[in-house]
Design a protein around this nucleic acid. Structure first.
Lengths: 209, 209
DNA sequence: TCCATGTTTATCATTTTTGTTAAACATTAG
DNA sequence: CTAATGTTTAACAAAAATGATAAACATGGA
């Protein structure tokens, strides 16, 4: 008999929604089951335990993040295109799942052994990025900076405003709509913060005033 | 009889240590009591409930953050000095309590009503900063940018690398020592990312290669 | 139809965590 | 010294969360 993956998938997707979108990282199995509209026992039926469910979410989250990271930065394109794509994709993706980084970090702290994640230290990707970065630096479009700091700058500028959404909203007094507009403006701002020229387009920039 | 605040203070400081330094945001009262070496009932004696303890930590955390923010950005000094100080203080402070932002964000999500935090929208601070920023922009030391995006850039660059420490360490293959060195380098990198000139000093920069 | 297999539910047991209470302990003023 | 007050502890009670199980239910093939 064919096992219908509907319920299993429903539980997993609901768990992602509760944890990554709502930010309830401490959600109980009952809360997840209620949100999914299924009996709590089904979580144990399909995932054995809460811990297994969480571990599954964690593995998928880092796999997805890694794939996105490598796909975008590894594509065959000029650095400026890669970065513009990175900004666009990471901001949009993180907007959908604003608390996924919090979850990943929390899990990595909670069980420091089982974490493998990924390391770009010795990959060819790193070499290629280094070449592209050097090229931009010698062209004068990027100020001298190490590849690591460059990538951390990029990640910081994209991810922090989403991770710290409640803080930004209160400090700068943003409504929900204002915040949304702010994030879209931000794509251009980040690009301009990283590159000296204005690659993306020449339209007037609402983010300045 | 004078109530000795030693135990109460010990519990609170230990709770901060467990939550903000170790990152165990889901820590039980028993874990906190054990870490402090006191009987768990004392937590209820001094703080009534776990919830009250957490609320106390939350209020102090945002008060401290607010004070630091306003003190540094509100001091009577050139913008470059303020920013350099901000970077220095926030990175060092966040290094001591790497998970405090995670905690604040989690609490703000968990009880969206009770959050007052602070808003710089209509303060004189904002006007003064805007003047200083405009001045730098017209001098050409900062690229045109709105004050909000400028401040968010600054916060992002300072805080994300600490908040996402485990992610950075695995992606870029950093040891504990390497990470520490990285954060110190980062102070200069952030300043140079924000300002076009190199204000701080003219020594050779280890962060480039 | 009826059986076999997979799925779902209701119920119970266990564990974990929080919160309470009364008694023991310490300290200081009188 | 001792009585009063504040502090600490051990033990208990209650609540919440996880996990396990057996029975009910559904479905598809012989």
């Amino acid at each position: 008999m064919i096992s219908s993956p509907q319920t299993e998938s429903l539980i997993k997707e609901t768990a992602k929604k509760v944890l990554f979108q709502k930010g309830l990282l401490y959600a109980t199995t009952q809360e997840i089951a209620d949100e999914a509209g299924v009996n709590r026992a089904l979580i144990h039926y399909y995932f054995r335990s809460r811990e297994h469910l969480i571990a599954t979410l964690f593995e998928e989250a880092i796999a997805e993040r890694k794939a996105r990271f490598l796909n975008i930065l590894g594509m065959d394109a000029p650095l400026q295109t890669k970065i513009a794509t990175f900004i666009d994709v990471f901001i949009d993706r993180a907007t959908q799942n604003p608390h996924i980084d919090n979850f990943i970090i929390g899990e990595m702290i909670r069980r420091p052994n089982e974490v493998k994640f990924f390391c770009i230290k010795d990959s060819k990707l790193k070499e290629r990025l280094q070449l592209q970065l050097d090229e931009e630096i010698s062209k004068g479009t990027i100020k001298p900076i190490s590849l690591t700091h460059f990538l951390v700058n990029l990640s910081s500028l994209c991810n922090y405003p989403i991770l710290a959404k409640p803080i930004l909203q209160t400090i700068h007094g943003m409504s929900e709509l204002g915040y949304k507009k702010f994030l879209q403006e931000r794509k251009k701002v980040i690009f301009k913060t990283i590159f000296k020229n204005n690659f993306q387009n020449g339209t007037s920039d609402p983010a300045i005033h």
